[in-house]
Computed example of a mutant assay.
Amino acid sequence: MVVVMAPGATEAQVEAVIARVRQAGGEAFVSRGVSRTIIGLVGDVEQFRALNLRRMAGVAEVIRVSTPYKLVSRHHFPSRSTVVVGGSGGRPEVRIGPEYFTLIAGPCAVESLDQILETAELAKAAGATLLRGGTFRPWSSAETFRGLGRSGLHMLAEAGAATGLPVVTEAADARDVEAVAEQADMLQVGARNMQNFALLDAVAQSGKPVLLKRGIQATIEEWLMAAEYIAQRGNLNIVLCERGIRTFEPTTPATLDISAVPTVQRLSHLPVVVDPTHASGRRDLVLPLARAVIAVGSDGVLIDVHPDPESALCDGPQALAGADVRVLASAIRRLAPLLDRDTADVTSVLVPEPR
């Protein structure tokens, strides 16, 4: 069962609902979003119904939800949610949700200050409104570049400040969340950590929006349950990211599950973006998949860009640069409005003239 609080509900009214539920032997999980506060109830549903919570001050609605992911379920939201990123430190607010198409772009890893500054300018010129860059990088090979850590965080924050772009980066360990949250506007949970519950607990309590990638072998329900775990700990500002799943096909590192976008949008009110870069692992597939992602109704894309992919310390073969970035910018500018999506202004010099 879920209690949806009215937009103007006070903290005292929220606490009164929690107290009544606990007196009845139940548990209450409060989650606050941009425009809504909801309370998920765990316990005897029939006993909760007898509490007559609907008549309490500040309560807008009480809904019985049958899915195990109650707080992120679409059942109690007539419209899908929008998550706001940024708005502090002089950087603008970026909205990710059903009315927008958001380009999140940057290098797979921050390698140096010059590299991230140049990449940030490239991303912004392509129409990106969020700058991503890896600083703490979990990887399957011990020989792969694992990021610059905290020094990379400072470089990423400097690039964001220089370009006016809010930044998103991955926290790979619960012990690093506090440091990452001090520099980043949004915290990413990578595919390998989707069910790292200590990390989910830490990012939920950071107070920052969370970009939650789907695990490479995770079902949609498992993905939504990971989001529910974050929401139960008070943070409803979650953006889901489909990045491909493992199948029998070895041609690409993962198989991009395009059907997951409309499926999850039907099941959950949370925004859904797609990472075609890591799903394909190949530069020649990123642009076709990005076009498909726009057409299927995604709320945005996450793309690797790099000023010199051939010299990249990691994932160079999948990063876009030069002409590919111009084509991406053109595709977003032309296709996203066809689905009634607002996009950032794209620098005209980077967009090819129509033939």
Rank of each mutant, 00 (worst) to 15 (best):
D201W: 06
D201I: 09
A202W: 02
A202T: 00
V203S: 02
A204I: 06
Q205L: 15
Q205M: 13
G207L: 07
G207T: 06
K208V: 08
P209Y: 02
P209T: 00
P209H: 02
K213I: 08
K213C: 08
K213N: 11
R214F: 05
R214L: 11
R214C: 08
I216F: 15
A218V: 00
A218G: 13
T219F: 05
T219D: 04
I220K: 09
E221Y: 12
E221R: 14
E221N: 13
W223F: 15
M225W: 00
A226K: 04
A227D: 09
Y229N: 01
I230H: 03
A231C: 13
A231N: 11
A231G: 12
Q232A: 12
G234F: 03
G234T: 05
N235A: 08
N235C: 09
N235P: 04
N237G: 07
V239G: 02
V239T: 03
L240V: 14
L240Q: 07
L240C: 13
C241V: 03
C241I: 04
E242S: 12
R246F: 11
R246S: 14
T247V: 06
F248M: 13
E249C: 11
P250K: 09
T251M: 10
T251Q: 09
T252P: 05
T255V: 07
L256V: 01
L256R: 04
S259Y: 05
V261P: 03
V264T: 04
Q265N: 08
S268K: 05
S268Q: 07
S268D: 06
H269S: 15
L270P: 07
L270K: 10
P271W: 01
V273R: 00
V273K: 00
P276A: 07
P276S: 10
T277H: 10
G281C: 14
G281L: 13
G281I: 11
G281Q: 11
G281K: 10
G281T: 11
R282V: 08
R283P: 12
V286L: 13
L287T: 10
L287P: 05
A290S: 14
R291L: 05
A292T: 11
A292V: 11
V293G: 02
A295Q: 04
A295H: 00
G297S: 09
G297F: 04
G300N: 01
D304H: 06
D304R: 02
D304A: 07
H306W: 03
H306M: 07
P307E: 08
P307Y: 08
P307V: 04
P307N: 07
D308L: 08
E310F: 13
E310L: 15
E310C: 14
A312E: 03
A312N: 01
C314N: 14
C314I: 15
C314F: 12
C314Y: 11
G316K: 01
G316R: 01
Q318F: 09
A319L: 09
L320D: 04
L320N: 01
A321E: 12
A321M: 12
G322V: 11
A323Q: 14
D324V: 06
V325M: 11
V327W: 01
L328F: 12
L328H: 02
A329N: 03
S330A: 15
